[in-house]
Design a protein around this nucleic acid. Structure first.
Lengths: 119, 119
DNA sequence: CAGAATCCGAATAGATACTG
DNA sequence: CAGTATCTATTCGGATTCTG
């Protein structure tokens, strides 16, 4: 990455939440309930096992989620959001708001353009 | 992307600001002053011409920046943030704040760990 | 159940050379 | 000056197989 200070901090934030599946993972974990590995898989029908593992490991490294292993057979692993991870909630909310408005805006522009074409 | 609605809107927002260089480009343009192509290059010493062009084109397509061509020789092209693009400012600011705190946190944790190693 | 390991293809980004 | 075009290197994600 760059040495540019503002950029760095920005990217530090993005690294924690960007990734093809991180937003959804966080979305579900932020509901508060701890989720098992396969529960998450069910909630994200299209994710591969591999990507789920990788993303969870990154979130764990950032201390945004915790991984609790119950030593039993069959194994049980629960993921939950940390207190620190909860500080992401407003950040995600802000992004979500803007994203929703942005999609609506694009939709409107597209509709207008199609209207003009029929003129 | 997924069909999951919350995810979609989230990603719509991220698409507009994520990309290896978009955050810095936006950071500079949000200062308010229109910038020429090569001015941006100088502000982003490590970006390639190609990536700068590509990212600017995407931002233009999202109507976040405007591209004004002055038909003269040598050519002059100025990029500036649109009014709509300015609505991103608070979003970026939120991310930046969290990112700064996150980096500081990591730094502290690392320092602590190194302290423990000398015990 | 919750993964680790390996392999492969697709998407991203950089390097370089050329142009109106 | 402000790009295009092309080619290559790197990264990322998916598919598949195996395991405690």
């Amino acid at each position: 990455m760059q040495k540019n200070p503002p950029q760095c901090q920005f990217v530090a934030a993005l690294d924690s939440i960007v990734g093809k599946w991180k937003p959804v993972i966080l979305y579900h974990l932020l509901q508060g309930k701890p989720l098992r590995f396969n529960e998450l898989r069910r909630l994200l029908p299209d994710i591969t096992q591999r990507m789920l593992t990788l993303h969870l490991r990154e979130l764990e490294a950032d201390e945004i989620v915790t991984r609790v292993v119950y030593p039993q057979i069959p194994p049980k692993v629960e993921y939950s959001i940390t207190e620190y991870g909860q500080s992401l909630a407003p950040v995600l909310e802000t992004l979500h708001q803007w994203g929703a408005a942005h999609m609506e805006r694009k939709r409107l522009i597209k509709a207008q353009r199609e209207q003009n074409e029929t003129d």
